[in-house]
Design a binder for these strands. Structure first.
Length: 888
RNA sequence: GGGCGUUUAGCUCAGCUGGUAUAGAGUACCUGCCUUACAAGCAGGUGGUCGUUGGUUCGAAUCCAACAACGCCCACCA
């Protein structure tokens, strides 16, 4: 083993080894209880970013933990075809070759995308593998696989037959750049600084005009009326009147509608049913036929003045304001900020657009999905997201599922060209149901990407077929994802799961935060502030990346990433590596252990480390079970670094070096191997590579019955708590010893005693029982403090001059001729006395407060009183010592 | 407009059902060490009226309320 851990030499080799051993494969026929997770499928042409790294590390930890803990663990991987996103990428590429999808034609274009998919699909999966993910790659799926496509058609037909899918002319969010409809969720609102223009619309049959306020002047060309609130007295006598729409000279009515807010703008609103969702609904209420004046590319069209035709909507806005101004019809303009929808794929401002689209009725689907959250059969981690989910479920609006793009699942609907009959079918129909004509044409649109993703937990397992995979692993257990897609994906999967399978697709939802840079900005390629996980893996290793990321991520909180963060994991891996190297380096010939040494041979540190180990096992399990992975990391970090390396291994060095006492050495090796093997197992889900590598080295030197039996650590068993080893008393006792050692080290350090100067310690405990126990620990004290001799004597008198401290009533002296500085000691003791005085007065107030004594639990009161006595004893001794020292 | 979150050491953050000799870690900083596992290390140290103000309580970083700053999500005010 080399002096520094080198992940590069290890990681790829080990991943291949796992693959060769089929270690990730889950079996439908296993008798073990199932545990399953489906991956949130990354975009097929995506590249790995820190969000993926976090998301997949969490899943890998859960799946490895469960796999080691006796479950048949399936982590089902796959990718998403990401309709609009992927089509955009391929179109961009085509544009470079001066081609576009229309010149290519639909068939050729789709082939082009498939080609792209084949080429780039491996990027993201290769990158995931570098992270060390233990996905069952044999079961990898793609949302446009034949089976999954069939599932999409099945559910479409089922929903249609149940009356839950309909087609209609509605106003929807339209991206003029992508030239497709978007769902409400895909139109992300952003606050923009805009203007509010007040326009005058002259009356037809009388003098004067109405003043309407608008943020979108260009839509006035499509106005079909003016609406006012029926209770608005300013306008009550004008309802029913007619105004003449300037520039187009169309006569339009003034109507009354409750929607209108009297207090906003002028209290009168122009109604443009074809270009505003509210106006659309108002138009319906007042039988107004929408007039389209903006086309699918965002340019002006229709029966409007010639000069505007073909103009971009924003250019037209400018001109129109000028023209109205010229006519004297612009009353005023004011600044106004408002939320405007943007395409979540290309960020273009969304245009409300009136067109024929397909919709899913959400209300009926939402009922069960809502109930699952209300009665907590589904659990959110952290739980605050439950409310967000419930709010959305209670206010669902119908889901626009048709997209005017080519890459995706084509809508399984055919129109008879002869009798106009609509045929909805899973398999391509050969003839019309009504007139038997074979002249059928399929709907041109494809389905929203999420219409396939919402089936992911079961379509990937073969649904609608009743496969063994579904039987064994569906429903899944935990979904790990980001809160951004609760509505897009999580909520819809729950609806689809209930609707298709009658079961919730998962019961735990773990939502992790967003990865941000150190200034709090979301990491993204376009902002150029992202840290590339692959670069970090190259530099620090996958384990370091994983461990660092998880350790700094509190449950559900956003992660602020600084490049130095990864030092934590790298240094920790190196620490573990060196501790292992040291232990294994002390084994000359392979040793075999069957059990721990007899209890009688345990030293204090043996009992202590076993107790700590088992507390760590308990804590780690609990933390993972509650999805508090950062807590598990901290527990392991502290135990391994501070308890095991800093104290236990140090304490065992003497035994390990000594070859003249083979029993001692053997016992030390036994215990060290035992603890190390457990450490590796506990850490494996978090740092799979290095633990596997050390495991390999460990097994070359040590055979430990029932512990190192498995050739690969990933196939070994996760440690279970052995309460026969846990003891608070032992931990407390050893803790006292540690405090004494630290006190002595502090004396040395504060007095700048050179390391090579050894010395003597005198320890005067108050109690004889303590003295006896400490007597058995003098070797350890000598070792840790670098002393020649430690004397424990409860009846000894104080040395005339020495470095000193008082630890829980135990007086500790360090005797080093000429090396202890009186001033330093006086200062230290004074400081300590002042500190303790402060504490003591606080405790005194407490125990003298009758309210506290009467109302607080007896145990708490007793504890405080005991604490106070202890403080007094310490203070008394310190003050006495200080006085004596000052006298000399 | 509604909802949610955050505010703790110079920096990044833990701190769960209120009670640990009096708030922890990493990092940074100061001191001493290349001590035969590890300088990516070891030992010791400095550093905090836990955003503000009230309240509940014997007791509050922790529970409640208001306020402030920052951030996020949702929403059809033209």
């Amino acid at each position: 083993m080399e002096k520094q851990y080198n992940p590069k030499q290890v990681e790829d080799k080990i991943y291949s080894c796992w693959i060769e051993n089929s270690s990730f494969l889950a079996s439908e026929s296993s008798t073990k209880p199932p545990y399953s997770i489906v991956i949130p499928p990354p975009n097929v042409t995506g590249i790995l970013h820190m969000g993926h790294a976090l998301n997949n590390t969490i899943q890998d930890i859960l799946i490895r933990y469960k796999r080691m803990d006796g479950f048949e663990a399936l982590w089902l991987p796959g990718t998403d075809h990401a309709g609009i996103a992927t089509q955009n990428v391929v179109e961009k590429k085509l544009a470079l070759e001066e081609k576009n999808r229309h010149t290519l034609g639909r068939e050729a274009f789709i082939q082009e995308v498939w080609k792209w998919k084949q080429e780039y699909h491996s990027t993201i999966t290769k990158q995931l593998k570098k992270l060390g993910v233990s996905c069952d790659w044999d079961k990898e799926r793609f949302t446009m696989d034949e089976g999954l496509s069939k599932a999409v058609r099945e559910i479409f037909v089922k929903l249609y037959n149940d009356g839950l899918i309909y087609r209609g002319k509605y106003i929807i969010n339209w991206c003029p750049r992508c030239q497709t409809a978007l769902s409400d969720e895909e139109a992300a609102h952003q606050e923009l600084a805009g203007k509010l223009w007040h326009f005058k619309y002259p009356f037809k049959n009388r003098e004067g005009h109405m003043v309407v306020a608008t943020t979108r002047p260009e839509t006035m060309l499509g106005d079909t009326g003016i609406a006012v609130n029926p209770k608005d007295e300013r306008y009550s006598d004008l309802i029913g009147q007619t105004v003449v729409l300037p520039l187009v000279n169309r006569e339009i009515p003034i109507v009354a509608d409750d929607f209108v807010d009297k207090s906003f703008g002028t209290g009168a609103v122009k109604v443009t049913p074809a270009h505003d969702p509210n106006d659309f609904h108002m138009g319906q209420r007042h039988a107004m036929e929408p007039i389209v004046v903006i086309d699918e590319a965002g340019t002006m069209c229709g029966e409007i003045p010639q000069k505007y035709i073909g103009q971009d909507r924003f250019a037209c806005r400018k001109d129109l304001v000028e023209d109205m101004k010229a006519l004297g019809l612009l009353e005023k303009e004011e600044n106004h900020s408002h939320a405007v929808g943007h395409c979540y794929r290309c960020d273009t401002i969304v245009e409300p657009y009136y067109s024929d689209q397909w919709f899913v009725k959400m209300k009926p689907l939402a009922e069960g999905a809502l109930q699952a959250a209300l009665d907590n059969t589904i659990t959110f981690y952290p739980k605050r997201w439950r409310k967000t989910y419930i709010d959305w479920m209670e206010n669902t609006r119908d889901w626009c599922i048709s997209r005017q793009i080519w890459w995706g699942h084509r809508i399984p609907v055919w129109y008879c060209q002869d009798c106009q009959e609509t045929v909805v079918a899973v398999e391509t129909p050969t003839k019309c149901n009504a007139c038997h004509s074979q002249n059928l044409e399929q709907d041109n649109d494809v389905l929203d990407t999420w219409f396939s993703s919402w089936l992911w937990p079961f379509s990937t397992m073969g649904w609608p077929e009743k496969t063994d995979l579904v039987n064994k692993f569906y429903p899944t257990d935990t979904l790990v994802t980001a809160p951004e897609i609760i509505f897009f994906w999580v909520a819809r999967m729950i609806m689809a799961g209930l609707y298709c399978t009658g079961k919730l697709p998962f019961t735990n939802i773990m939502l992790h935060g967003t990865v941000r840079d150190d200034t709090g900005k979301k990491m993204s390629k376009s902002l150029g502030n992202s840290i590339d996980p692959i670069e970090i893996i190259d530099q620090y290793g996958a384990d370091a990346l994983r461990f660092s990321l998880i350790m700094i991520t509190a449950q559900g909180a956003d992660v602020y990433l600084h490049p130095d963060t990864f030092d934590i994991g790298r240094n920790f891996a190196n620490k573990l590596w060196n501790a292992s190297r040291f232990l294994l380096g002390n084994i000359d010939q392979k040793v075999t252990f069957n059990t721990l040494p007899t209890t009688e041979s345990f030293s204090a540190e043996d009992q202590w480390i076993l107790s700590k180990l088992n507390k760590t096992i308990e804590g780690t399990r609990k933390a993972i079970d509650l999805f508090r992975l950062n807590e598990a990391c901290h527990l392991l970090y502290d135990f391994i670094w501070h308890d095991f390396c800093d104290w236990y291994v140090e304490a065992k060095k003497a035994d390990l070096y000594q070859n003249d006492s083979p029993d001692k050495k053997s016992n030390a090796l036994n215990l060290c191997s035992y603890v190390l093997a457990h450490i590796l197992k506990l850490l494996h889900p978090f740092m799979p590579y290095i633990t596997e590598e050390i495991w390999h080295h460990l097994r070359e030197k040590v055979s430990y019955a029932h512990i190192t039996e498995s050739e690969l650590i990933m196939a070994s068993t996760f440690p279970k708590v052995d309460i026969s080893h846990t003891s608070d008393d032992i931990e407390e006792q050893f803790g006292l010893l540690q405090e004494i050692i630290i006190a002595l080290r502090t004396v040395r350090s504060e007095n700048n005693v050179p390391p090579e100067k050894r010395g003597k310690a005198l320890i005067i405990p108050a109690k004889e029982s303590t003295a006896q126990w400490l007597q058995s620990q003098t070797d350890l004290i000598n070792l840790f403090v670098r002393l020649d001799e430690t004397t424990i004597d409860s009846s000894a008198s104080k040395p005339t001059f020495a470095g000193q401290a008082v630890v829980k009533g135990i007086q500790v002296f360090l005797e080093l001729e000429g090396l202890i500085d009186r001033e330093v000691e006086v200062a230290r003791l004074t400081k300590e006395i002042n500190h303790l005085k402060g504490v003591a007065s606080k405790v005194k107030n407490k125990i003298e407060n009758p309210n506290f004594v009467n109302k607080a639990p007896e145990a708490v009161v007793a504890k405080e009183k005991e604490k106070y006595q202890g403080l007094l004893t310490n203070l008394e001794q310190l003050e006495k010592n200080l006085k004596e020292m000052s006298k000399e």
